[in-house]
Write a protein that binds this DNA or RNA. Structure first.
Ligand SMILES: [Mn+2]
Ligand SMILES: [Mn+2]
Ligand SMILES: [Zn+2]
Ligand SMILES: [Zn+2]
Lengths: 139, 139
DNA sequence: TATGTTATGCAACTCAATTGCAAAGATCAG
DNA sequence: CTGATCTTTGCAATTGAGTTGCATAACATA
């Protein structure tokens, strides 16, 4: 649809908007849950795994997506909000991993509390994941 | 030392206290940080990887340890407190993953807040990990 | 001791993640 | 437009965590 929109979104993060990257960004925008490399492999069968891998890595390094470590053994990625800088704790929110369908969801409205960490523990990121059953799977 | 103590701890979780399991439990008690399978492999070079793997699995299934998914790509395990049932949210606490030494620490005194999840999301577990630099590494 | 159950060891395999290198494509100065 | 340069993509191979099937050893129990 409005590819120019996606191009600008990439450019705003200093990512060269190649055809491949626009297609992957588009897919992530349309998708409701976080995505892992295997998900992209299934969808973009024509593209090489390495390209998909490096695309996610580029997106992550430029702050277009954030990383989620759920219990699936697959590193998931989800789009950041427009003004997100992935800073701790303000831009960190809770995620939900469904053990049944193995999908991971962002809960951007659920922030994390401030923690007084023990002396000399310096935080920089956070991954807060609640595991359970999603609406589609909690019959 | 007091091996009988460890034996009782295993028995209280309905785990047969074999020599191997007592040795691994002992190692986990002495260790300050959470441990992954590769850590056990390095330490128990005489034992088979599968045995170590299944020991961790048994410990987990019987609630002797809890699981932590940090950004290391290695599933970590840490001992539960005596009366822990790993129930959400009461027995869930914050963890800290140091990207420098790749060690993961339990912060049992830092609990997690109650979250009002969206409709029909049923929680059962939680993995809350703050990433950064630990005292030894934040020079 | 005899018998059934559980734990351990060995070997093989799956799969996500990662790297080196070569080819293709884009960018830019002249 | 042309050639040099940089970036992106594709291909091939490897690493390493996790997992499984099956055989054997150790253990428990009668
Ligand atoms: Mn998210
Ligand atoms: Mn813990
Ligand atoms: Zn689900
Ligand atoms: Zn450290």
């Amino acid at each position: 649809m409005n590819m120019t929109n996606h191009e600008q979104r990439l450019l705003s993060r200093n990512i060269q908007p190649t055809a491949m990257r626009i297609r992957i960004l588009s897919f992530m925008v349309e998708n409701k849950s976080a995505l892992g490399l295997p998900d992209l492999e299934e969808t973009f069968t024509h593209a090489d795994r390495t390209t998909l891998y490096r695309t996610l890595k580029t997106f992550l390094e430029h702050g277009l997506v954030h990383q989620i470590n759920d219990a699936s053994g697959i590193t998931k990625y989800a789009l950041c909000s427009e003004n997100c800088t992935c800073s701790y704790p303000d831009d960190v929110h809770v995620h939900f991993y469904c053990t049944s369908c193995e999908q991971t969801f962002c809960f951007p409205h659920l922030g994390i509390p401030h923690y007084d960490l023990p002396e000399n523990f310096i935080p920089s990121h956070g991954s807060f994941v609640i595991t359970g059953s999603c609406p589609s799977c909690s019959s």
